[in-house]
C-alpha cells in the first residue's frame, strides 16, 4: 500500500435527524498511514460521522471517498471489504458465540463455494488464534463472549476487526470504560499495527491518550471540523478551547 493514496475523506457531508443537523457539511481528509484522532464535545457528531463513513447510515448529502474511490452510500459490508474495519462505541461482540467464533465471523470471502466452506478450517482457526494471542485473550477462546469481562470484550472486538485484515481501522472510544492498564495495552497495539502500515481513525475522549498516540487530530463541533493539525497545534487553538470549555 503506498502512501500516495488518500485515506478516508468527506466532502460537504450532511446528515440530519428530525430537525437536528448531526453532521453539517463536514469536509475532512484523514491522513494515510497515520494515527488520526477525531475529537469533539459530546453530541458533536463524531459517531454519526463514523456511521456515515462505514455505511451504517446514509448521509443526506455530500460524499465519502476512500483511497480516492467514491464509497458514499455503499452497504456496510462492501465498505468493510474495501478495507475499512471499525469498532463500536460501548463495544459490540456477538454475545452467544464463543470468543473464537466471534473472530471467525470476519472471514467472508467472495464466491458461494468459498462461503460454504467450513468456517473452522485449520487456516482460519490458526489465524484467529494468532490474533487472539496478539490481543492477549487466546486462553478464552471457548468461552461465550457474554461471559468474559468488558475489557476482554474490547480486545475481542479488536481481534474480530483485525481478522478482516483492514487497511484502515476506525475505533469508536477504544479506551472508554476500561482500566488504565488496558488503555496502555490498547495504545501499544494501535502503535504496533500502525507500524505495520495500518491507518487509524480514533474517536476518543481520553485527551491524554489522544495527545500521546495520534499524529493528526481533527476537532469536531456541531457536526463540522473546527480545527485540525498535530496534537500540539490543536491543543492551543482558541476555537477548540471554546468548544470544549465554552469560554
Amino acid at each position: 500500500m503506498t502512501g500516495s493514496q488518500g485515506s478516508v475523506a468527506t466532502q460537504d457531508l450532511t446528515k440530519s435527524f428530525g430537525g437536528v443537523r448531526a453532521i453539517d457539511g463536514a469536509s475532512v481528509a484523514f491522513k494515510e498511514g497515520e494515527i488520526n484522532a477525531l475529537i469533539g464535545p459530546n453530541g458533536s457528531g463524531k459517531t454519526t460521522f463514523f456511521n456515515c463513513v462505514t455505511g451504517m447510515i446514509r448521509p443526506d448529502a455530500g460524499t465519502v471517498t476512500y483511497q480516492d474511490r467514491d464509497v458514499t452510500g455503499l452497504p456496510p459490508h462492501r465498505i468493510a471489504r474495501s478495507g475499512i474495519g471499525r469498532s463500536f462505541q460501548l463495544c459490540r461482540v456477538f454475545p452467544r458465540l464463543t470468543v473464537l467464533e466471534n473472530v471467525l465471523v470476519a472471514v467472508q470471502p467472495h464466491g458461494l463455494l468459498q462461503r460454504l466452506r467450513g468456517s473452522r478450517n485449520a487456516a482460519d482457526v490458526g489465524r484467529a488464534r494468532e490474533l487472539l494471542a496478539r490481543v492477549g485473550i487466546d486462553h478464552l477462546e471457548h468461552a461465550e463472549a457474554r461471559d468474559i469481562s468488558y475489557g476482554q470484550q474490547k480486545l475481542l472486538e479488536l481481534a474480530g476487526v483485525l481478522m478482516g485484515d483492514p487497511h484502515t481501522i476506525m475505533l469508536d472510544e477504544p479506551a472508554g470504560g476500561v482500566n488504565p492498564a488496558l488503555v496502555e495495552r490498547i495504545a501499544d497495539l494501535v502503535r504496533e499495527l500502525n507500524a505495520e502500515g495500518r491507518t487509524f481513525i480514533i474517536v476518543e475522549h481520553n485527551m491524554e491518550l489522544v495527545m500521546g498516540l495520534s499524529d493528526h487530530v481533527v476537532v469536531f463541533d456541531r457536526g463540522r471540523p473546527i480545527a485540525q493539525g498535530t496534537p500540539a497545534v490543536v491543543q492551543d487553538d482558541p476555537l477548540v478551547l471554546e468548544a470544549y470549555l465554552g469560554v
Binding site: 459490508h77 467450513g118 468456517s119
Partner: peptide, 22 residues
C-alpha cells in the same frame, strides 16, 4: 459449520456488527 453459518449466526446476535465485519 460453514462461513455462511458463521455469518448467519452473527446476524442473529447483532446485525449491524455483522455487517461492519463484512
Amino acid at each position: 459449520r460453514s462461513r455462511l453459518g458463521a455469518g448467519l449466526k452473527a446476524i442473529r446476535e447483532d446485525e449491524d456488527k455483522a455487517q461492519a465485519l463484512g
